[in-house]
């Protein structure tokens, strides 16, 4: 599904290296969790994978379903089945949720050689997926994310994930900003979306999320590299001990 080899990436503007030789391999149907301290490069990894401008890949390769991901434009990657749930979803004043999703869904369908969805099918799909994450139906009538609460924005990301049925979904701190009930609802939604041919990369700071969305592998990202990988117990260890022991072990300065 996803194969990242020795990925080095820096900030385009000033050349600051952020990712420093990152390796990660995700097989179909797997859920990988990535944990790591603030500023270690988790969102940068997500951005580089999604194709956001402003980063330069200086070394390494990323293959996604056999294609060279880094050769594709951001929108092509999405149409090929890569989805990023943003840590900070963007507000789009004046762009209605339904217009936005219609364009999004139909762009991917067109790419797959399918006809655009009929208005009725589209509405039915919206209804079904909104129910999946318990998204307030009133939100569907509003502008994308505009004035949404923090939690509503995060639900909306998973709602969009459901609408677009990607092959690989990267969830960047989808749990932050969710209350305990919402965390349960959103996790249950994600679990329903788990499929043998759909993989997830879940970026989180909290072991709690991983009790709901149980990962196959947990990775620790420290200073731009994955320094430790293990089972879900690793998350519990981190919760207890923090990251310092790993810093010492790997010689990364705090």
């Amino acid at each position: 599904m996803l194969d990242i080899k020795n990925l080095h990436a820096s900030i385009e503007e000033d050349g600051t290296p952020i990712l420093k030789g990152l390796n990660l391999s995700v097989k179909p149907g797997e859920v990988h969790a990535i944990m790591g301290p603030n500023g270690s490069g988790k969102s940068t990894l997500a951005s580089v994978l999604a194709g956001r401008d402003g980063y330069e890949v200086t070394e390494g390769s990323v293959s996604f379903e056999g294609h060279d991901l880094l050769e594709m434009e951001a929108d092509e990657r999405a149409r090929e089945g890569l989805f990023l749930a943003f840590q900070y979803p963007v507000e789009l004043p004046g762009v209605s949720m339904s217009n936005f999703l219609k364009h999004a869904v139909n762009s991917t369908r067109e790419h797959q050689g399918k006809d655009p969805l009929s208005a009725t099918d589209f509405l039915a799909l919206m209804r079904e997926n909104a129910a999946l994450v318990d998204l307030d139906p009133a939100l569907k009538a509003r502008s994308v994310n505009e004035g949404f609460s923090g939690g509503e924005k995060k639900r909306n990301e998973i709602f969009q994930l459901a609408m677009l049925s990607p092959r690989l979904a990267i969830l960047d701190e989808t749990d932050s900003g969710l209350d305990i009930d919402a965390l349960r609802v959103v996790s249950a939604g994600v679990n329903k979306l788990r499929q043998p041919d759909r993989s997830f990369v879940v970026i989180t700071h909290y072991q709690r999320l991983l009790e709901y969305i149980v990962p196959d592998v947990v990775h620790v990202l420290l200073d731009g590299r994955i320094v430790q990988s293990g089972g879900k117990e690793l998350a519990i260890d981190l919760e207890e001990k923090g990251y310092d022991w790993l810093r010492e072990e790997t010689g990364v300065p705090a």
């Binding site: 956001r52 951001a74 943003f86 789009l92 364009h103 677009l164």
Partner: peptide, 19 residues
């Protein structure tokens, strides 16, 4: 905003028009 639209598969020209 443009990137957000593109990350959902919408081609840049279309994304621009939407915004």
């Amino acid at each position: 905003a443009l990137f957000y639209l593109r990350s959902r598969g919408i081609p840049p020209r279309q994304a621009r028009v939407i915004l």
